[in-house]
Design a protein around this nucleic acid. Structure first.
Length: 489
RNA sequence: CGGGGCAUAGCGCAGUCCGGUUAGCGCACUUGGUUUGGGACCAAGGGGUCGUAGGUUCGAAUCCUACUGCCCCGACCA
């Protein structure tokens, strides 16, 4: 059998690239750092988007759309935020091209068409949105505003990787405005919970919920809540963040409201987002050396039916019956009627694409009133009676979803290591990787030194943990609880 | 922005050192046939301004110069 995917042990990065390519998820484009998301990859994103959108609506949010371009003067209003993104902004400076007099049929930027004010291509939309909210908010009766937008953003990255880090990416960004600090914090936490639930229940990707250290916090936030997942190579992936923005943007954009006592107050804010990066996380959480592995809840196709040998009438009719029965249960099914490819080729191909369940139907099976069912997560094959096949598959899909989560959780838990000395820290980081749970003195200096010396960063300060007196692994100073370090994507 | 590599058919490559008929191989593609329970086989086909521009030469994919693009590794980052 021709191996088309580099094994994880041989070269993890190459394995990841191979999966993206061979599973037909995305490809590089003519634009540096920007990828083309192909139909199958986009279908996965659509399923993520649809589910998240539903969860946002259920928590009271509505969708809207704000412009791609942000005037520089607005962008720079909230200084910390602007500074945080300044180094990776694309800027529009002109609005017209003209024929290049020195070249044949070539175009050049028309120097006459310089914009009076440059436009920043949004790396995030707080600025344009808070500029707008100023007009929308007068009274506490106008609050809260609970808006989400699905959009593309641009961050001019030095080095990019499909899905994990691209110059342009798709995401959603929630931007809410509140009359009180408590309500805003509650909102940020609520969306943090939504992300964690989505990651675990739909992506089958276990996450650690926590908040960021000051160094790692979103520029312009008072607090950043994060979900952190662990990839199979022992590196952490920040999978979603929810920010309590305090009154920083309200002050920067002068957004005040009259409270019930008719006094002016600055509005309290949150923002929260997840991106196409989640697709990268999904790949690296479950997939194996044979290709992509998808959890049923996000798989565009749940079941592929492969007729064996060549599709003939009897087999196709049976395949159609099974497909109809499965579809009646809300399961998405495709029958592969291609006569030019052999079954073995199809098996390998569908495994590469991570389709959770494959049903093979041959004449021999039909004589015995069974079909062959193969599950992608364990590669297990079984002979299953036709009678009740629909319910069997339905249960199997649930089982696969659960199994993927359990498997990822076991791996994750086995790779959270409690360490109490810096020597141990460096050793575990080097030899085992994963999350390191240890004491830290709470200072940015220590965090920075550890980062410089080991490349590990504080992924989060976990929300759920017992308070425990200890000593910082680096400085030996007292600490009241453990934080999670890791090398990160 | 530093350091390394690559550019020849849709994709992956050989040929370049040491210039010489008509530039080759695998996969993919087209047509016909035999096949089909884990990546089938046979036969016949189509497809190239050898990254761009200039130079050396009787003659350049091959030598020289400049340019452009892409990939990998670092610094930076979700």
């Amino acid at each position: 059998m021709a191996k088309e995917i580099t094994s994880r042990s041989e070269n993890y990065s190459q394995w990841y690239n191979d999966i993206v390519k061979k599973a037909d998820l995305a490809e590089n484009s003519a634009v540096r750092g920007c990828m083309i998301i192909k139909p199958y990859g986009y279908a996965i994103w659509e399923r993520m988007r649809d589910q998240l959108d539903k969860m946002f609506k259920e928590t009271g949010h509505v969708n809207a759309y704000f412009p791609l371009f942000v005037p520089k003067s607005l962008f720079e209003a909230e200084e910390k935020n602007a500074e945080g993104f300044a180094k990776e902004c694309a800027i529009v400076t002109h609005y017209r091209l003209k024929n290049d007099p020195s070249g044949h049929g070539k175009l050049m930027v028309d120097p006459e068409a310089k914009l009076e004010e440059e436009l920043v291509v949004r790396p995030t939309s707080e600025a344009i949105i808070w500029h707008t909210y100023k007009d929308w908010i007068q009274s506490y009766r106008d609050l809260p505003i609970l808006i989400n937008q699905w959009a593309n953003v641009v961050r001019w990255e030095m080095r990019t990787r499909p899905f994990l880090r691209t110059a342009e990416f798709l995401w959603q960004e929630g931007h809410t405005a509140h009359a009180s600090k408590d309500e805003a914090i509650e909102e940020a936490k609520k969306m943090h919970d939504v992300y964690a639930t989505f990651a675990e229940e739909y992506m089958a990707m276990p996450v650690i919920k926590g908040f960021k250290s000051e160094n790692e916090r979103f520029a312009g936030a008072d607090d950043t809540f994060t979900i952190e997942a662990l990839m199979q190579d022992g590196k952490a992936l920040q999978a979603g963040t929810s920010h309590f923005l305090g009154q920083n943007f309200a002050r920067a954009f002068d957004v005040k409201f009259s409270n019930a006592q008719n006094e002016y107050e600055y509005v309290w804010a949150t923002s929260w987002g997840v991106s196409t990066r989640l697709v990268g996380g999904l790949i690296m959480t479950h997939s194996d050396d044979d290709g992509l592995v998808l959890p049923p809840k996000l798989a565009p196709i749940h079941v592929i039916i492969v007729p064996i040998p060549k599709p003939d009438d009897v087999i196709l009719q049976k395949a159609q019956e099974i497909a109809d029965a499965l579809r009646a249960l809300g399961i998405s099914v495709q029958i592969d009627k291609d006569e030019n490819k052999r079954p073995g080729f199809k098996f390998a191909e569908y495994e590469m694409k991570g389709i959770p369940v494959r049903i093979g139907i041959g004449l021999r099976d039909l004589q015995n009133n069974v079909v062959e069912v193969a599950r992608r997560d364990t590669k297990e094959k079984m002979s299953v009676p036709l009678d009740g096949i629909d319910v069997f598959i339905q249960n199997l899909l649930e089982d696969i979803q659960q199994n993927l989560f359990n498997r990822a959780l076991k791996y994750r838990d086995e790779h959270i290591t409690r360490v109490d000395t810096y020597e141990e820290f460096k050793m575990v980081l080097e030899e085992k990787g994963g999350f390191l749970s240890c004491h830290w003195d709470g200072t940015a200096e220590t965090e920075e030194l550890i980062k410089q010396e080991t490349k590990a960063t504080i992924r989060c300060i976990p929300l759920r943990q017992e308070m425990e007196e200890g000593q910082c692994i680096y400085s030996g100073k007292p600490s009241k609880g453990r934080v999670i370090f890791a090398k990160a994507y």
